[in-house]
């Protein structure tokens, strides 16, 4: 079959699906469908992680992104009850300009990265760094301080999200009285 190995077939199929689903995220009008396509894109990227022998990151990616972040997005969208027919659209000129800028950016990136080294990625063989055991050793020795800082960042984000999302009781009471 064209002289391609299974890995290369999988890479091609996963890349094609990831790009197609990513395009659908941008071009679908209904936000709920957009979220679901983004989940599919994340599954394709998790497949790429498995191909790169990064099993731990693949699992964390699915758990964190598809499991937590996307559910948060869906929850917010359902909370807002957005009507796909009333979906605001940018002016056609703005959208064309966005497409042209994207095309030029792709052209520049491809041109700049064309001369990247043609090394072969070692797969399946000696690369064992993506396994939980090896990654955990690095994470808890070399990167222990950033790990703790990340926990503080998450705590701060948690408190901040609650403070921002909390209903302002004073103004709210006044609104109710005015109504």
């Amino acid at each position: 079959m064209l002289g391609l190995t299974i890995t290369q077939w999988l890479f091609g199929i996963l890349s094609f699906l990831a790009i197609m689903f990513a395009l659908m995220v941008v071009f679908t009008r209904n936000p709920v469908n957009s979220v679901l396509y983004l989940v599919l894109t994340f599954f394709c990227i998790a497949g790429h992680y498995i191909l790169l022998n990064a099993q731990f990151l693949a699992v964390v990616h699915i758990v964190v992104y598809a499991g937590a972040i996307m559910v948060l997005f869906l929850f917010i969208i359902m909370l807002m009850n957005l009507n796909p027919d009333a979906e605001p659209r940018k002016h056609i000129v703005t959208r064309i300009i966005a497409g042209v800028i994207g095309g030029v950016l792709l052209f520049v990136m491809v041109g700049a990265l064309k001369g990247a080294e043609q090394l072969q990625i070692v797969q399946g063989g000696p690369s064992q760094i993506g396994l939980v055991k090896n990654l955990g050793k690095v994470l808890f020795s070399e990167f222990l301080f950033p790990f703790e800082i990340a926990s503080i960042l998450l705590l701060a984000a948690l408190v901040g999200a609650i403070m921002i999302g909390k209903r302002d009781t004073n103004t709210n009471d006044k609104d109710i009285i005015n109504q």
Binding site: S15, I19, A22, V25, V26, G102, A116
Partner: peptide
């Protein structure tokens, strides 16, 4: 297993990044 050239990953990442950038610019 036959490896995949790093260029393919660079191109895939560039395409995904630009799809995201176009989405930021084109959606309201």
């Amino acid at each position: 297993l036959n490896g995949i050239p790093i260029n393919y990953y660079i191109m895939l990442s560039a395409v995904l990044f630009i799809i995201g950038a176009v989405g930021v610019m084109a959606r309201r």
